[in-house]
Amino acid sequence: MEVRTIKVFTTVDNINLHTQVVDMSMTYGQQFGPTYLDGADVTKIKPHNSHEGKTFYVLPNDDTLRVEAFEYYHTTDPSFLGRYMSALNHTKKWKYPQVNGLTSIKWADNNCYLATALLTLQQIELKFNPPALQDAYYRARAGEAANFCALILAYCNKTVGELGDVRETMSYLFQHANLDSCKRVLNVVCKTCGQQQTTLKGVEAVMYMGTLSYEQFKKGVQIPCTCGKQATKYLVQQESPFVMMSAPPAQYELKHGTFTCASEYTGNYQCGHYKHITSKETLYCIDGALLTKSSEYKGPITDVFYKENSYTTTIK
Score class of each variant (00 low, 15 high):
Gln222His: 09
Glu125Phe: 02
His74Met: 10
Asn187Leu: 12
Val8Glu: 06
Gly267Phe: 07
Thr5Phe: 11
Phe70Asn: 08
Arg66Val: 13
His48Gln: 15
Ala69Ile: 10
Gly299Glu: 02
Ser295Trp: 10
Lys233Ser: 12
Lys7Cys: 12
Val203Arg: 13
Ser295Gln: 15
Ser294Phe: 13
Ala154Asp: 02
Thr11Asp: 05
Met24Leu: 14
Leu179Ala: 04
Asp180Trp: 06
Gln222Asp: 10
Leu37Ile: 11
Arg4Ile: 14
Glu144Ser: 11
Met245Phe: 15
Gly272Ala: 00
Glu52Asn: 12
Thr10Lys: 13
Glu162Leu: 00
Tyr96Glu: 06
Gln216Met: 10
Leu254Asn: 02
Lys54Ala: 14
Phe70Glu: 11
Phe242Asn: 00
Thr75Asp: 08
Tyr172Gln: 10
Gln31Arg: 12
Asn309Glu: 08
Asp165Ile: 01
Tyr234Gly: 01
Thr75Gly: 05
Thr292Leu: 09
Tyr252Asp: 00
Cys190Ala: 01
Tyr72Glu: 07
Lys127Asp: 11
Pro130Ala: 11
Asp287Arg: 00
Gly33Asn: 04
Asp62Met: 06
Tyr252Ala: 09
Thr55Cys: 10
Lys191Val: 15
His256Lys: 14
Thr116Tyr: 02
Gln270Ser: 15
Cys112Glu: 04
Asn16Trp: 06
Lys255Ile: 13
Cys182His: 01
Leu290His: 14
Leu37Phe: 12
Thr75His: 07
Thr192Arg: 12
Thr198Pro: 01
Thr198Glu: 13
Leu119Gln: 02
Glu2Ile: 09
Trp94Lys: 04
Leu114Gln: 04
Ala108Val: 08
Phe56Gln: 05
Ser86Met: 10
Gly161Met: 05
Ser171Leu: 10
Cys193Gln: 03
Asn49Tyr: 13
Glu168Ser: 13
Gly82Thr: 13
Asn61Trp: 14
Val99Cys: 11
Gln98Glu: 12
Tyr252Gly: 02
Thr266His: 08
Arg66Ser: 10
Glu239Thr: 11
Leu151Lys: 04
Thr198Tyr: 13
Lys255His: 11
Asn49Leu: 14
Ala108Gln: 09
Ala145Ile: 02
Arg83Lys: 13
Leu283Asp: 00
Gly53Lys: 13
Thr302Cys: 09
Glu144Gly: 07
Pro97Val: 14
Lys183Ile: 10
Asn49Arg: 13
Asn16Asp: 06
Lys158Thr: 02
Cys261His: 00
Leu163Val: 13
Gly267Asp: 13
Gln237Leu: 14
Lys219Arg: 13
Ala150Val: 02
Asn309Ser: 12
His48Glu: 14
Thr91Ser: 05
Pro78Glu: 13
Gly194Lys: 06
Ser104Glu: 05
Pro300Val: 15
Leu291Thr: 15
Glu52His: 14
Ala136Trp: 07
Ala140Met: 12
Asp303Ala: 01
Lys307Met: 12
Ile105Cys: 06
Gln197Trp: 06
Val58His: 06
Asp165Arg: 00
Thr55Asp: 03
Gly257Met: 07
Thr91Asn: 05
Asp180Val: 07
Glu71Gln: 10
Lys275Trp: 00
Ala247Lys: 03
Lys44Ala: 15
Gly272Met: 01
Cys112Tyr: 03
Asp41Ile: 11
Gly194Pro: 07
Thr266Arg: 07
Ala247Pro: 00
Asp23Ser: 13
Ile124Phe: 06
His256Ser: 11
Asn110Leu: 04
Gly202Met: 02
Asp109Phe: 04
Leu235Val: 11
Gly267Gln: 11
Tyr306Val: 01
Glu281Leu: 01
Leu59Phe: 12
Asp63Met: 09
Leu88Met: 07
Pro241Lys: 10
Thr282Val: 12
Asp62Pro: 06
Thr35Pro: 07
Thr159Asp: 13
Thr43Cys: 12
Cys261Met: 03
Met170Arg: 02
Arg66Lys: 14
Ile286Asn: 00
Pro97Lys: 11
Lys92Phe: 05
Tyr274Gln: 04
Ser295Leu: 13
Met209Phe: 15
Val58Ile: 11
Cys227Phe: 00
Thr292Ala: 10
Lys93Thr: 13
His74Phe: 06
Val221Ser: 04
Leu153Ala: 03
Pro224Leu: 13
His51Pro: 04
Ser240Pro: 01
His273Pro: 00
Phe148Lys: 04
Met170Pro: 02
Met26Cys: 14
Glu296Met: 10
Ile124Glu: 03
Pro300Leu: 08
Asp38Val: 11
Arg167Lys: 07
Gly220Gln: 03
His51Arg: 04
Gln237Thr: 13
Tyr28Arg: 05
Gly101Arg: 05
Leu102Val: 07
His48Met: 12
Thr282Ser: 13
Gly257Ile: 00
Glu253Met: 09
Asn61Asp: 10
Thr10Met: 08
Phe305Asn: 00
Leu151Ser: 06
Gln237His: 15
Thr199Met: 10
Val12Leu: 07
Gln123Thr: 06
Asp180Pro: 00
Ala289Gly: 11
Val22Thr: 10
Gly228Lys: 04
Gln175His: 12
His176Gln: 11
Tyr306Ser: 00
Tyr208Gln: 06
Thr55Ile: 12
Gln30Asn: 08
Val58Ser: 07
Thr232Phe: 09
Leu114Asp: 03
Tyr28Trp: 11
Gln251His: 15
Val3Trp: 12
Ser213Glu: 06
Leu179Val: 05
Leu65Arg: 09
Val203Lys: 11
